[in-house]
């Protein structure tokens, strides 16, 4: 396209060289217009480039296992992974496993984030209460919650509930710390303003502290969804009858590398989907924020 433009431009100039200045002006306009389309083209190129890299990776992987440079016993290969995935989806329990894992992740995520946010916000009410709780929150945050997995399995059994609890534990502390960060950053002058307008503490809390802290709470969502998924999977690793995590462990013990890779890819896709979901949730919450507070 650009070549064509240039060519016609040159042709026009050769044919009629007298009104050169006019020509120059027209050319300038064309260039500035091109600046806009160039930006579009660059974006287009970026997208194609990304797709190409992904295709090359998978084709290369397939190719090198086919010619024997990579041992397919350890590395598997895309075609076999796809085949296994299809088999698992149609004949196996992959779909149920996905639902099981996402279920415990989402339940843990939602309950953990809500309880954590409420806990963090509650610290506004009393400095004494916040002061007493603070070291415990810090210790809980430092504690590797995944290490509690076996205890949770003993406490809550090997079923769905223990995974949801682990996902909950993973998210509740970060959420509480984020919300508490928001609470601590509330501009004291705003509280003074509210009191000078005759507001009760309950009103200061609802009209200033909660909306002020919302961005802090929302910012913890993205981290929390990943943490919740990790909690669920580790829960399934420890002991479970269903779930993608259990499938990976099972595949590992029977040396079915294809199935391990299926599990890894399924979890990646699940993680990306949930991340997108959280971004949508963030946008929705940020929009609602103005409405709720008014």
């Amino acid at each position: 396209m650009a070549m064509m433009n240039q060519e016609t431009c040159y042709a026009a100039r050769a044919a009629d060289s007298e009104p050169r200045q006019k020509q120059e002006k027209v050319k300038f306009q064309v260039e500035s217009y091109d600046g806009e389309t160039q930006e579009k083209r660059r974006k287009h190129r970026v997208v194609t480039g990304r797709i190409l890299v992904a295709v090359f990776l998978f084709v290369g992987w397939e190719f090198f296992t086919r010619i024997g440079w990579m041992d397919s016993y350890y590395w598997s290969c895309p075609s076999m992974i796809l085949q296994t995935a299809w088999l698992q989806l149609t004949k196996g329990t992959l779909l149920q496993d996905i639902i099981y894992t996402s279920g415990s992740t989402l339940i843990g995520f939602v309950s953990g984030t809500l309880v954590g946010a409420l806990l963090g916000l509650s610290f506004w009410w009393s400095k004494t209460y916040a002061g007493i709780s603070e070291p415990f929150i810090i210790i809980l945050n430092a504690l590797p919650k995944l290490a509690l997995g076996p205890v949770l399995v003993i406490l809550f059994g090997i079923g769905f509930f223990s995974k949801a609890v682990l996902a909950f534990l993973m998210t509740v502390v970060t959420s509480a710390i984020s919300a508490y960060g928001g609470v601590k950053s509330v501009d004291p002058a705003l509280e003074t303003l509210m009191v000078s307008l005759g507001a009760k503490r309950r009103q200061v809390f609802a009209k200033v502290v909660v909306p002020w802290s919302m961005p802090w709470i929302i910012s913890s969502l993205r981290i929390n969804i990943a943490l919740a998924l990790a909690g669920s999977i580790v829960g399934e690793f420890i002991s479970s009858e269903q779930g993608v995590g259990r499938m990976i462990i099972y595949a590992g013990t029977i040396l079915d590398i294809n199935l391990v890779w299926v599990g890894v890819f399924v979890l990646s896709v699940l993680s990306i989907l949930m991340y997108w979901g959280v971004i949508l949730l963030e946008k929705w919450l940020s929009k609602r924020l103005a409405i709720i507070s008014s």
């Binding site: 002058a189 705003l190 307008l197 103005a290």
Partner: peptide, 17 residues
């Protein structure tokens, strides 16, 4: 509190309203 109208130094408008 609340018997006089008090305007503080900063405008203190709530940014989400």
């Amino acid at each position: 509190a609340g018997t006089v109208g008090y305007m503080l130094q900063k405008d203190l408008l709530l940014p989400w309203r």
